[in-house]
Computed example of a mutant assay.
Amino acid sequence: MERKFKEALAHRRSYYALSNKSLISDEEIENIVKFAVKNIPSAFNSQSTRMVLLLGEQHVKLWNIVKDTLRKIVPAEAFKTTENKIDKSFASGYGTVLFFEERKVVEGLQKSFPTYQEKFPLWSQQTSAMHQLAVWTMLEDVGFGASLQHYNPLIDETVLKEWQLPETWELIAQMPFGVPLQEPGTKEFNSIEERVRIFK
């Protein structure tokens, strides 16, 4: 599709009804993730973002981990609704991108630049957010629908163990994606005039 940048940003939405189909090859999906990791900026060129792409059985495994974790803490009478949401909105997709930040990098910058030490964790989150937006927009541009989920920190320990990831990787967000089964809901916008001030 490759819309113009502004068109791609405007078209990006949250899709919750997904199928486990793909309109592109797995290699092309991998290239989207790798492109984002290489080209998205970061404070002090820290390159602190880490991503994990889960496809097929690995994708399903993640959402089973989420359900198993929630089953222990969500009241039994409410869990069916939770399980249904996960099965139809997230697990039903084609894959999931996990976004992490490498704490070792952030802590190293805090030691090297003590003047800004309180800001580095914040800047790390901003870096992750830029990666999330880029991947989300590029996935949608090739025909996928996606949403951004935050089941961390509940699933952090199990995820790190399951995929043998470094303990210093901090899980930030999960992005399930797949071919959309329905259009997203109507999006409301607050007044631009209230949110932007221009001085000339």
Rank of each mutant, 00 (worst) to 15 (best):
S191H: 14
V159P: 02
E157G: 09
L55I: 09
K200M: 10
P153L: 02
T158P: 02
S14L: 04
V105T: 03
W123A: 07
S128I: 10
G93Q: 13
H59Y: 02
I40F: 02
K187R: 15
R71E: 14
F144K: 03
P114K: 01
S42D: 04
A10L: 15
A78I: 07
E162M: 07
T186P: 07
R195N: 15
K88E: 14
M51W: 02
P121F: 09
S42A: 06
E118Q: 15
E102K: 05
S22C: 13
K67A: 05
K111I: 00
A134W: 14
V106L: 10
L62G: 10
G143C: 09
Q58G: 06
A76K: 15
G143Q: 12
F199C: 01
I86K: 06
M175G: 00
A146R: 02
F199N: 04
I40W: 00
T49P: 05
L53N: 11
S48T: 04
Q117A: 15
S147Q: 11
Q58T: 10
K61Q: 14
E183D: 11
T186L: 14
R50H: 01
N152E: 09
A36D: 03
V159C: 06
V33F: 03
A17V: 03
H59P: 12
E183G: 00
G185H: 06
Q132T: 08
T81V: 11
P184N: 02
V106D: 06
L133I: 15
V60P: 02
P75H: 10
F90D: 12
E118S: 15
L54I: 03
F144Y: 07
E118A: 13
V142C: 07
T158N: 08
I73A: 06
R50Y: 00
E7A: 12
A173H: 05
G143V: 10
F199M: 10
R103E: 15
M51C: 12
V135S: 04
V33E: 02
F144G: 09
T69Q: 11
W163H: 07
Q110M: 13
I40C: 06
I198G: 00
R197H: 10
G108A: 00
S46F: 01
L98V: 10
P166A: 05
I172F: 07
V37K: 08
R12S: 03
F44T: 05
R50S: 00
F79H: 09
E194A: 04
